[in-house]
């Protein structure tokens, strides 16, 4: 049987959106996100919550191989969101990434165009942990001075990829980082260095 979606579609979607919005508006700030969802494995409740809150028939969604291989996951997302699935990351409005370490290079996703930088992919990554402290140093819009955050696991050379992503501003992808019970944001406007 298909796992249920939000118990309260209106307010659970709003709560998830606000957590994501706060996270993107204040990069490095780790926001609580505790959806009461039990999606089919390996989809995490946090990935599911973001998908249910933000995707629909107007947003092609790319699934990483770990998610794409699970037929239950596609069925769950199709039923609850109606979003078309795409296997081309460059056509995706959203990309759900379960195995964060094996996330494709950011440059393979849609980066938008100079006239329409908003036509880019938003990546949603499932991580094991996001904590304050050693890891990445962030600065830019939304950050007072600099802030440190330690998400993991991340693909090799993640900070360098973020630097490349930042260099093309206003083109680029935005990242929503999730871990059990929490969410953080890395918009394209953020300068990321290893710390």
């Amino acid at each position: 049987m298909l796992a249920p979606g939000f118990a309260d579609p209106v307010h659970d979607a709003q709560g998830t959106f606000r957590a994501v919005m706060d996270a993107l508006a204040r990069p490095g700030l780790v926001r609580p996100l505790a959806p009461f969802l039990a999606p089919p494995a390996p989809l995490t409740p946090e990935l599911a919550a973001v998908a249910l809150a933000l995707t629909d028939a107007d947003t092609p969604v790319w699934l990483d191989p770990a998610l794409a291989e699970a037929a239950d996951v596609a069925a769950y997302l199709r039923f609850h969101t109606g979003a078309p699935l795409t296997d081309d990351p460059a056509r995706a409005a959203f990309a759900l990434v379960r195995e964060s370490r094996r996330c494709p290079p950011l440059g393979r996703f849609a980066l938008g165009t100079p006239a329409y930088p908003d036509t880019s992919t938003t990546l949603v990554l499932a991580l094991d942990t996001i904590t304050d402290g050693q890891g990445l140093s962030l600065s830019g819009p939304g950050v007072r001075g600099t802030v440190r955050v330690a998400p993991g696991p991340l693909p090799d050379g993640f900070a360098a990829q973020c630097a490349e992503n930042r260099a093309d501003f206003p083109l680029g992808v935005d990242l929503i980082l999730t871990a059990p019970g929490r969410v953080a944001g890395l918009p394209r406007s953020t300068t990321v260095t290893e710390a």
């Binding site: 919005m21 993107l24 501003f169 406007s189």
Partner: peptide, 8 residues
Amino acid sequence: ILKAIAVP
């Protein structure tokens, strides 16, 4: 809104 925040 999320895009707007990402591209101030």
